Simulated scan of single mutants.
Amino acid sequence: MNIDLLPLGFYAALVVGLCALMLGLSAVLGGRTRLTAAGADTYESGIVSTGGARLRLSARFYLMAMFFVIFDLEAAYVFVWAVAAREAGWAGYLELLVFLGLLGLALAWLWRRGALDWNPPRRRTGTR
Results as ranks from 00 to 15, higher is better:
122 R>K: 09
10 F>L: 14
30 G>P: 00
103 L>K: 02
99 F>S: 10
122 R>T: 01
127 T>I: 04
43 Y>L: 13
36 T>D: 15
94 L>C: 09
5 L>N: 08
18 L>D: 10
56 R>A: 13
92 G>V: 07
73 L>D: 14
109 W>V: 03
82 A>I: 05
79 F>W: 14
99 F>M: 13
80 V>S: 08
47 I>K: 15
116 L>E: 01
63 L>Y: 08
127 T>A: 03
89 G>N: 08
73 L>C: 13
68 F>I: 05
9 G>V: 02
38 A>S: 14
10 F>E: 01
120 P>D: 08
110 L>Y: 05
69 V>A: 15
111 W>Y: 08
34 R>H: 11
123 R>E: 09
73 L>I: 09
101 G>Y: 06
5 L>K: 09
33 T>W: 05
45 S>E: 15
122 R>H: 03
48 V>N: 13
57 L>I: 12
91 A>P: 06
26 S>K: 00
101 G>R: 03
11 Y>F: 12
57 L>G: 01
101 G>C: 01
9 G>K: 05
114 G>M: 02
35 L>H: 06
91 A>T: 12
128 R>E: 08
109 W>S: 03
80 V>D: 03
82 A>W: 12
118 W>S: 10
113 R>Y: 03
30 G>N: 03
79 F>P: 02
45 S>G: 12
89 G>R: 04
60 R>Q: 12
6 L>W: 07
5 L>D: 02
6 L>I: 09
31 G>N: 04
98 V>P: 10
27 A>L: 04
48 V>L: 15
116 L>G: 02
